[in-house]
Amino acid sequence: MPISTAPSLRIECLARLNLTGRGDSVATPMRVAIPSETALGERRIALVPDGVRRLVKAGHQVLVEQGAGEPASARDADFVAAGAEILNDAAEVFGRAEIVAKVRAPTLDEVALMTSGAALVALLQPAVNGDVLERLASQKITAYGLELVPRITRAQVMDVLSSQATVAGYKAVLLGASESGKLLPMLTTAAGTIAPARVFILGAGVAGLQAIATARRLG
């Protein structure tokens, strides 16, 4: 189920690429680009102003396409205040980037705008984006698929699947409640008592557990 109101992804893996200077070595200044998400219904953004501020503090340059953060309630002014440079041309955003951070995989046209030797950080969905991966490889672009990062303790800061599954479980119950013809909680009124609804949830992973918790909070 696509969740159009999902929050912005925290691209913490940029730190793992040594952009924040963590560890024994010093981070090499780089240009990180945040283009607009063009997938239908996509409202997330790869990097929020707080993340931009940390990268700028570490000595990096951050380029943000004009209006890229608006669907996620992040204004251009917020990015500027965090130290980012706003560009109104997508071609310039991709073309000047040493690292492109996106939520969804780029289109073939977007890949064509990237320079050879650049890096891409995104949810790549390689099973359905084989043509995009082939184009990335042919242009010698290093691509990091966040959904393929092992879900182990030392990689928790790069885990975007759990956060998105949490939102999906939460939102699924809200959408189900709005579509249901029955009220979820038990209600007692002068006219009588309405029994609480029964909610059936498949699975007990991150999304399922959040769905259970949300349904219980709704009554």
Rank of each mutant, 00 (worst) to 15 (best):
S180D: 09
I212L: 09
R198I: 03
G208T: 04
G205T: 09
P196N: 09
L209D: 02
L183S: 13
G181D: 15
I201F: 13
L183A: 15
L209Y: 07
L209N: 03
A213L: 11
T193S: 13
R198L: 00
I201Q: 04
R198D: 00
A195M: 14
V206H: 08
I194V: 15
G208N: 05
M186P: 02
F200W: 05
G205R: 02
L183W: 07
A211L: 04
V199G: 01
A211Y: 03
A197F: 00
T188W: 03
P185S: 07
A190S: 14
V206K: 02
L183Y: 06
G192A: 15
L202C: 11
L202H: 12
S180M: 14
M186Q: 11
A195S: 13
G203F: 12
R198G: 00
G192Q: 15
F200H: 10
Q210N: 05
T188D: 04
A191W: 04
G205E: 13
A190T: 11
A195W: 06
A213I: 07
Q210A: 04
G203W: 09
L209I: 06
M186H: 03
G203C: 11
A213S: 08
A197N: 02
V206A: 09
A207P: 01
M186Y: 03
G203M: 11
S180H: 11
L187K: 05
T189V: 10
A197Y: 00
L183F: 08
A213Q: 05
A191D: 03
P196Y: 06
L183P: 02
V199T: 04
V199N: 02
T189Q: 08
T189D: 05
A190N: 07
V199I: 13
I194C: 12
V199H: 02
T193I: 14
G192F: 12
G205D: 12
A197H: 01
G208Y: 09
R198Y: 00
G192R: 14
K182G: 07
G181P: 11
T193F: 10
G203V: 10
A195L: 13
A190W: 02
G181N: 15
V199P: 00
A207R: 01
A207G: 05
F200A: 15
